[in-house]
């Protein structure tokens, strides 16, 4: 019934995907790409949830992943509205230029 692929492969894939998301989040200067990196990280966590759920033979992990997706949808709606507002007010999407809280 279980697939022959060991659980650690899935978890390692999830970890690498999360690290990619962290890298994008820290490296990139474009707000939209930073936002996409957050989506990558959320997906990595969801993959871990589903993997553990599959190996425990419980569906609780599926529900957690589902709720993470709901939060991601809400976050995308509000975050993209914020991005549009920033672009309207400052006509830039460079995160280094949006630093008015620094001073």
């Amino acid at each position: 019934m279980l697939t022959a692929v060991p659980i650690s492969w899935f978890l390692t894939l999830s970890a690498v995907l999360f690290a990619l998301g962290v890298a994008g989040f820290v490296f990139r200067r474009n707000i939209i790409t930073v936002f996409m990196s957050i989506e990558l990280m959320l997906n990595a966590v969801n993959l871990s949830f589903v993997t553990f759920s599959y190996h425990q033979k419980q569906v609780n992990g599926h529900l957690y992943a589902f709720f993470v997706m709901v939060v991601a949808a809400a976050e995308a709606a509000v975050g993209l509205a914020i991005i549009l507002t920033i672009f309207k007010n400052r006509s830039t999407l460079n995160i280094d230029d949006v630093d008015s809280m620094k001073n």
Binding site: T3, V5, F10, L13, L17, E39, L40, N43, N46, L47, V50, T51, S53, Y54, H62, A65, F66, M69
Partner: peptide
């Protein structure tokens, strides 16, 4: 990338997800 993750879900019998 998201489609790849979806395929991994399907491999783990998470059809709804």
């Amino acid at each position: 990338s998201l489609l790849g993750v979806a395929g991994l879900y399907l491999m783990q019998q998470a059809e709804f997800l």
